[in-house]
Nucleic acid binder design. Structure first.
Lengths: 368, 368
DNA sequence: CCACATATACTCCGTTAGAGTATATGTGCG
DNA sequence: CGCACATATACTCTAACGGAGTATATGTGG
């Protein structure tokens, strides 16, 4: 009766949902009178962290803006721009985020949207741990053009795939899946799981198959978070070891699966990638990543940098133009190595017309 | 160059996004060294509220579970089940939510997902207000069957449309739009707006048109939050007056637009409605609202309760069956007033197959 | 037993997305 | 100078799907 929804996130806006699976706890005594006395007291105060996954496309490579912190310290890892939400200084959550990003990187954010609020990671409470996390992380996705036009002074653009090598399907299926991930996840799926997970109707094996497209299941490029979570849960990420997860300590030959990040930042970045991949398909957000004028081929390359597989060129052009998303500037771009390409710009007016569509995608069979 | 995205939320998972419009603040001095000293101190501690919008369908009416608080007090309003997140008591955010809901209503939640985290409402900081909000609200959407099977002891089911009468398009366009909302919003759109809003490329008039489908624009049933926000901003909701918004005090004949709720609960409910309407189309979540066995007609009526317009019966059946979402139980339901209907149940296995689809909708022209 | 109501099966057709083919118009090298 | 090459762009074909209508089956209630 109760849904144990698997982590399947086609449209991906809710990538981060359903992570705490909906198992019911035993009924507790009726304390409904507490409704009258529940107030938010100082005992329940927690710190709120604002975290920015800032995404761009640089030379056809999808990148995120990271700050390297204490490079000399051992175990130093990358961080996303972040800082605490301070009600005194910040009128809004997003305002606080923009302020932190400006301070730390010099960048003035353009498009930004909230992703998800995480609380169950970073000093993850193991059974018997009373010192539960007192920090809640609110993740944001920001999209920007990868130039220094917007004031960028600190921070470096790093490819998504340094953190998530198994997500890089641009050439073909990444070797790391078959060589490292698949065999270990299958081992993990066969391990006896703890009581809390045994109640689920969706087994570990099911989740592994769905997430990584094994045994005939198809690869869903939006399930970025689900895949990372699965690896974390199986103890296969550095963060899991850092957090003292027993599953991580159980491996004698734990492979290196991408670069780790501080705190739960890789989790937030995974959410951002999944959301970007999903949203680009149904909202005109690619244009946040583009310069004002661009050719349709450049637009296609940017979409492909985000989504991975190669698109069908002719159909891409027809769909983009047909949807009224762009209008020609009148100029052309020469020296493209062939016939000059017309330059286009984003038609901002579409946002005021019908519910604005995204960029329709259609995979190319061979390559054209 | 910078997008001032209007509040258009077709797929709706991000209904609550883009509310703080992406205007850039002036560049601030380079304080990037703060990156090393920023820690979440007690000074930045805030309270976190967990709020549950629990949705069901009762006699073909979409309803939410509310608790009436202090019914004798003047100005008493409904509240959603809620309580503070207490890191000591709650392992996870969702766990805390489930615990509060159980305490206050007796209900054991099934499906639940996080909606959005709000911080800029409820004692909304007007210019010069230093006592900024110290409470952040995390909204959750829960879907359940509207029976007492799950332990419900407190709280009452109230129709969505008591809070949002302008959303009720089941019969036809609600009169309240043309009679009350449209003329006042047009007045408000023509008022000189403050500096912060003048910079936007999307005007108030544009937003009004888009949100309420005026001047030929089409009605988008998913833009529930955007519409509520617009009414709040224009000072047309009771909450806006309660919060001391100047826009609310400017009206001499402010109409009553739906029942108000405490704090930002109506905002959270609006987010929940928009998300439900969006998600039902691309994920099989309707079944969370259904009993185990049901007829296809009952399923259709439930979908219609959520989405509003009448669907094309034959196509609905074909699409639902064709998507493999349901399987016949073998039984039939008699006494339907006509030919007995086959009973179906949800095929939970679809969640393990291809990215599980939702219920495809196709509006019926007349009615069949 | 007949009117009625609902359930269910089947057909038709226009739109669209996927895929392929053909043509236009530059660059750069021999 | 002109030809190979590369890219841009226009056009065609087709299978799938969704919107819409029609016909038939099988109950209930007067």
């Amino acid at each position: 009766m109760i849904s144990a929804y698997p982590d399947c996130g086609e449209h991906g806006e809710d990538n981060a949902m359903n992570m705490e699976l909906s198992g019911r706890a035993k009924p507790s005594p009726d304390k409904s009178q507490r409704v009258l006395e529940r107030d938010i007291t100082d005992n329940d105060s927690v710190g709120i962290g604002l975290n920015a996954a800032i995404v761009a496309v640089l030379d056809n490579e999808p990148v995120a803006l990271v700050v390297r912190q204490d490079p000399d310290r051992i175990g130093a890892t990358d961080v996303l721009p972040f800082g605490p939400f301070s009600p005194r200084d910040h009128r809004t959550l997003e305002g606080g985020l923009r302020s932190w990003v400006r301070d730390q990187t010099g960048l003035d954010l353009g498009y930004a949207e909230q992703l998800y609020t995480f609380a169950d990671r970073g000093r993850l409470p193991e059974p018997g741990d009373d010192d539960a996390p007192h920090v809640v992380s609110i993740g944001y996705l920001a999209l920007t053009e990868a130039t220094s036009h917007h004031g960028l002074t600190h921070g470096i653009w790093r490819s998504w795939y340094q953190y998530f090598p198994w997500e890089d399907w641009r050439r073909s299926r990444p070797d790391i899946i078959g060589a490292e991930i698949e065999p270990r996840l299958k081992l993990w799926a066969d391990r006896p799981s703890t009581a809390s997970t045994q109640q689920r109707s969706v087994t570990r094996g099911d989740r592994v198959r769905m997430c990584f497209g094994l045994d005939g299941a198809s690869w869903d490029e939006e399930k970025v978070l689900e895949r990372y979570e699965l690896l974390y849960e199986a103890g296969l990420t550095d963060e899991a070891l850092r957090d003292g997860r027993t599953a991580a300590q159980a491996w004698t030959d734990r492979p290196k699966l991408g670069a780790a990040m501080q705190s739960d930042h890789r989790r937030i970045l995974a959410t951002a990638i999944g959301r970007t991949r999903a949203k680009i398909k149904y909202r005109p957000v690619v244009f946040e990543l583009m310069p004002p004028d661009f050719t349709l081929y450049e637009l296609q390359k940017t979409v492909e940098a985000i989504l991975g597989p190669h698109l069908h060129k002719q159909n891409f052009r027809r769909l983009v133009e047909g949807a009224g998303l762009v209008e020609p500037t009148g100029d052309v771009k020469t020296r493209t190595g062939g016939r000059p390409a017309k330059l286009f710009r984003f038609r901002r007016e579409v946002l005021l017309e019908r519910p604005a569509p995204g960029v329709r995608v259609s995979a190319a069979p061979s390559r054209n």
